[in-house]
Amino acid sequence: MVSLNSYIVLSMIVFTIGVFGFLTRRNIIIMFISVELMLNAVNISLVAFSFYLQDLRGHILVFFIISVAAAEAAIGLAILIAFFRNKPTVNIDEINIMKW
């Protein structure tokens, strides 16, 4: 029997890797992917909690998170394409048009 803490630690590590990727990468597509990684880490911990607390409501929350993540990816990538038409780069250091 794997303990609840193992799942929490796994979820924690994946979340931290996602935070690291979001903070340090220059490519905006990989930053989006890091956000997905963080959402997946949260999903792992929610499913683990709902298994150990014998409660299905965690599964419902994971279902909602997956749907919202899909909507977020669609909108985010559409914004990215609209931006790429004006300035052909995905490097976040060059996306500074609104910088004061």
């Binding site: 977020e72 669609a74 909108i75 394409i81 609209a82």
Partner: peptide
């Protein structure tokens, strides 16, 4: 939310 995502993705892109 999903409807907004569908319409928004088309409008933006």
């Amino acid at each position: 939310v999903l409807l907004v995502a569908i319409v928004g993705a088309i409008v933006l892109a």
